[in-house]
């Protein structure tokens, strides 16, 4: 459990983890750890407490609404904190994160357009497949050029060898 998103190592602090899981949750990496039964108990208890709170007839409705609002906003605070200062798409980091995918995309599309189209060979590059799909979308030809994408293709250098573009660790 990592209740504090600031120190949560799973909180999508790199552009690569952001790319893989950024839309699946603010912080939690679903691939790390199994869901705990405690979550279900917590959900039932929290729901029951809110119902009990709502059924207190004597409480003025405005105060009830204010308390609920405070609870909802307070609970959302860790997520907003993560969005603003921890995640790789926070205001301070978003440009750098986008620059990596944009650079790889532009390199692949530029090369493929120059040769009419291209075929991609992936070598342990997790984030490359969707970017390559986007970069090569709509391009078709008789004799496609080759693109090799290695592990760190998004951040590493790219070189051209004949009809082949190589990006990542082996592109030296």
């Amino acid at each position: 459990m990592h209740p504090d998103p600031i120190h949560d190592p799973r909180c999508l602090v790199t552009s690569e983890t952001l790319f893989v899981d950024g839309a699946n949750g603010v912080c939690h990496d679903p691939r790390v750890g199994d869901p705990s039964p405690l979550r279900a108990i917590g959900l039932v208890v929290a729901t029951a407490l809110v119902i009990a709170w709502l059924t207190r007839e004597r409480l003025p409705s405005r105060r009830r609404a204010a308390w609920l609002l405070a609870l909802a906003l307070g609970a959302a605070l860790p997520g907003w904190l993560a969005l603003l200062v921890v995640r790789a798409d926070g205001p301070m980091q978003i440009s750098a994160s986008a620059a990596e995918t944009r650079r790889l995309h532009d390199t692949l599309r530029g090369f493929a357009r120059e040769h009419g189209c291209a075929e991609v060979r992936l070598d342990h590059c997790l984030t490359c497949a969707p970017i390559a799909r986007l970069a090569l979308s709509g391009l078709a030809c008789e004799h496609p050029a080759s693109i090799e994408l290695h592990e760190d293709a998004a951040s590493g250098p790219c070189t051209i060898e004949g009809d082949t573009l190589i990006c990542g660790s082996s592109a030296r």
């Binding site: 839309a23 995918t101 969707p130």
Partner: peptide, 11 residues
């Protein structure tokens, strides 16, 4: 930024 940030965006 006008660049994909998450896996399914490019898809």
């Amino acid at each position: 930024p006008a660049a994909p940030l998450f896996w399914d965006e490019p898809v």
